[in-house]
């Protein structure tokens, strides 16, 4: 600690004092909340029958508050656009993978894809769903990228971009079709709500997995000829 450190000390103490007040205030606010508050769980349970799935969290994510999820897929895509437009990331020359990483990735990637499929299917009635499946898929992608695997240039143009926007695209198409059929925004008819949710989730899983893996890679892959 030199001169500047000493000069900073009063500010540091003031900061700690202010943050202490903030913590005390927030803690007081939390503790004075009523100890029993069911929130929105009763309406969710009451309408679960009509939602097409039996896992309440999936029902909220893809039916009751589906527009949140729709916008969230948009946010993911925007973040990827941001990363790609900053393409000045130095290409990291990784050393070739050791035998352990190489063998492990061969062993794990098929399993991870299988687990992603299971989570997607199980999301209708048990913990799981598009986000969990998508992130497991992304983990498989990251593992592949770490071993030095790169997408073939044949697929890094249009096919890659199609898979990145598939989730948002399918979601928007479903929303527009439902409006044209006379419903309201993302109001699924109960008879085929389950099928629609599975369709949207499948596309969203692919998009989330590809987007997160692309975010990990950083730079924009060059499109092939």
């Amino acid at each position: 600690m030199t001169e500047r450190g000493k000069k900073q000390l009063p500010f540091r103490l003031l900061l700690v004092a202010l943050l202490f007040v903030l913590t005390a205030g927030l803690g007081y606010a939390v503790l004075t909340l009523p100890s029993q508050a069911p929130g929105l769980s009763n309406p969710v349970v009451a309408n679960l029958e009509a939602s097409g799935v039996s896992n309440p969290v999936t029902a909220v994510l893809l039916n009751f508050r589906a527009y949140d999820t729709l916008l969230e897929l948009g946010v993911l895509l925007l973040a990827l656009f941001g990363v790609w437009s900053l393409a000045a990331v130095p290409e990291c020359r990784e050393s070739p993978p050791g035998p352990v990483l190489d063998g492990l990735s061969r062993l794990l990637v098929p399993w991870l894809i299988l687990v992603a499929g299971y989570l997607l299917w199980a999301g209708a009635h048990a913990p799981g769903g598009a986000f969990q499946a998508g992130s497991v898929l992304a983990a498989a992608g990251v593992l592949l990228l770490l071993t030095g695997w790169r997408l073939d240039t044949r697929f890094s143009g249009l096919p890659l971009r199609m898979s990145l926007v598939a989730g948002l695209g399918v979601f928007v198409v479903v929303a527009v079709v439902l409006i044209l059929m006379g419903g309201r925004l993302l109001e699924y008819p109960p008879s085929f709500a389950g099928a629609l949710i599975l369709l949207i989730e499948a596309a969203a899983t692919l998009s989330i997995g590809m987007t997160l893996a692309a975010l990990f890679l950083g730079a924009r892959p060059e499109a092939g000829p």
Binding site: P38, G39, L40, S41, V44, V57, A59, V60, R65, D68
Partner: peptide
């Protein structure tokens, strides 16, 4: 069961 809306 807890409120699913904050979970989502």
């Amino acid at each position: 069961a807890p409120d699913p809306v904050p979970h989502a």
